[in-house]
Write a protein that binds this DNA or RNA. Structure first.
Length: 194
DNA sequence: GGGGAGATTATCT
DNA sequence: GATAATCTCCCCG
């Protein structure tokens, strides 16, 4: 079971190694199939210009949650790594609590329950209330699934600054991704990152 | 103190 | 594909 040391590393390394982990919140969740890394000196990162009330959690201890509101209406869940860096969890393959997630999302299609950061947070019932909580303690739970997926690596989604950096990681071949990886994507293995 | 942009998504054409 | 929904913070004045 990943502990604080797992997150006390470079966010790019953690983002790669989080693919295949199982994360649950209140007994609901699934396998992480898509992540993105955000670094302290990264113009696309919320931490780039230093701490504010909104991003304060990004400067907390490794393993802290950072939940922010996106475009005024969606919530997005991150795992804090080294100070000022975090991994955005963008998509899950649902494994537990499918019925509760489907009820929250208003759809019964597993393929889109958690395919996207806003959808994922909605399915798990995560809001700003959970900002700053530890991911290493209940109601959160992390565990190694035993899966050893191939990794797809490509540019991050939905950003304008530093958009070319290949800091988006995916479970190769997963049908639960928020969006496909483009032709520019490359393939690797988790233990080759870092 | 105000205007604009942003790590998004559901819905309609 | 285009657009609306609408929060938080930055930056300029």
């Amino acid at each position: 079971m990943p502990g604080r040391q797992f997150f006390a590393r470079d966010a790019v390394t953690v983002a790669a190694q989080m693919i295949g982990l199982e994360i649950t919140f209140g007994g609901v969740g699934g396998l992480i199939v898509e992540t993105e890394a955000y670094l302290p000196d990264d113009p696309a990162s919320h931490s780039f210009k230093g701490p504010t009330r909104r991003n304060a959690s990004m400067f907390g201890p490794p393993g802290t949650s950072y939940v922010y509101r996106s475009y005024g209406l969606h919530w997005c869940l991150n795992a804090v790594c080294l100070k000022g860096s975090a991994v955005l969890i963008r998509a899950l393959e649902p494994t537990t609590g499918l019925d509760r997630m489907a009820a929250r999302r208003g759809t019964s299609s597993a393929a889109v329950l958690c395919a996207g950061p806003g959808r994922l947070a909605a399915a798990l019932g995560i809001t700003g209330e959970e900002d700053g909580l530890s991911l290493l303690a209940p109601p959160f739970a992390l565990r190694l699934s035993g899966a050893a997926p191939g990794l797809v690596i490509g540019p991050r989604i939905g950003i304008t600054r530093a958009a070319e950096m290949p800091w988006r990681f995916g479970w190769q071949g997963s049908r639960f991704l928020s969006r496909p990886f483009g032709a520019a994507a490359s393939v690797s293995k988790a233990d080759e990152i870092g």
